[in-house]
Amino acid sequence: MLEIRNLVKQYGRFLAVDHLNLQIPKGSVYGFVGPNGAGKTTTMRIMAGLLPATSGCILLDNMDMIQQPRLLCSKIGYMPDFFGVYDNLKVTEYMDFYAGTYEIPYRERGEIIDNLLELVDLSHKKNDYVDVLSRGMKQRLCLARSLIHDPELLILDEPASGLDPRARVEMKEILKQLQTMGKTVVISSHILPELAEMCTELAIINHGKLAAQGTVHDIMKQLQQKRIIRIKPLGAVEQTVAVLRELPAVGEIYENIQDIEFEFTDTEEVLSDILKKLIEAGIPIISFGEKEGNLEEIFMQVTGGAEI
């Protein structure tokens, strides 16, 4: 398990990370969400051993990553939000170079490189020069590079940034595979709905502080004070609205073209009574249910409308 305890990073008078506490279970895909300058990348760089923390600690399997970065570098794979590549180096040579930096014996490298290139679907490009690959391919190659030493923990800083929709889908598929391989993945992204699909848990960070933490469902539940119920009647929209207006538990009603939404704050029993009343009134109902919360709306609400 990865645990962040009271992590602080200060640049002069600016507090980039403000007493951050997080617990990331083993084998989870954990999302870091926050506006620009929230402290996501700073936290990730501290975790990767690239930045010293002002105070606090990060424990991986009860070992302090800040005090013993050398011991833990073999357990961590880091992929920054940019892909650093060398000119005049072929894909296999690029991978072989990083295998060398992790002291992987020569005889084992070939098989590892072939497997990783297959995982990121770059086997057909193994003899191409790295600098001529497309952005999506470079991003996938960097992901393969971060896996060269078979790390337990993968830190991916905005892996989908700047990718076209197809490349994003491919990246998402690879991450799913990594999850099935039992890797703990910490990932940050600005594309919130995608992150919600990929992550088992999320942390929303704002001004270096933890604003919310948990599963997507939990966070929505925590932050949504009012539930929105959506009804889709077969015609009879006006009649439905009239019935709803008579019910005290129903709050503000919104009439859309094909459905009706209303605010609701009461219990599940009262909600079932509302459905019963509508059916008793002879209104043909096609669907009746709670509207799925919009993660971006929640994000804006939590971060006070900060720039994504």
Binding site: A48, G49, L50, R70, C73, S74, I76, Y78, P80, F82, F83, G84, V85, Y86, Y98, T101, Y102, E103, R145, H149
Partner: peptide, 10 residues
């Protein structure tokens, strides 16, 4: 932008 990638290795 390859220095960080080197510094996180062994």
């Amino acid at each position: 932008q390859t220095l960080d990638l080197l510094l996180v290795t062994k």
